[in-house]
Amino acid sequence: MDNIHFIVLLSAFVFLVIVVSMTAKNKLTDQYAFMWLTFSIIGVVLAIALPYLNDLATALGIAYMPSLIFLLAFLVVLSLLIYHTQLLSKQEHRIKLLIQEVAFLQKDIQDARKEDRNS
């Protein structure tokens, strides 16, 4: 095993450990915890399979193997970003509804108090 293979393997494992410990401490809710767990396991598998990736890259017609890694990583990060923006929009919509409901409730309470005072 050469130096670089060792560093890659180590990083993948450290990442997996971080994800597992965050999940254990309930810092990630279930669906995200599972998503990151999947990603980190894929990372470890790829790190182990690093020497074979050269063959895969050649088979795909890619002369420089890291290009393949970067391309895949970029696509994954891009999909994650869109997914997160979508979640953010959903949250924003829910928060808006909640704010409106709170305002309606406040008005109902104020109106009820006024009626009490008048009666």
């Binding site: 704010i99 409106q100 305002a103 406040q106 008005k107």
Partner: peptide
């Protein structure tokens, strides 16, 4: 009046009125 606890912007405010 209805007082929104935070600023929603014109769209959210007007929609509150429609709701």
């Amino acid at each position: 009046h209805i007082s929104l606890p935070v600023n929603l912007g014109i769209g959210g405010a007007v929609q509150t009125g429609y709701r």
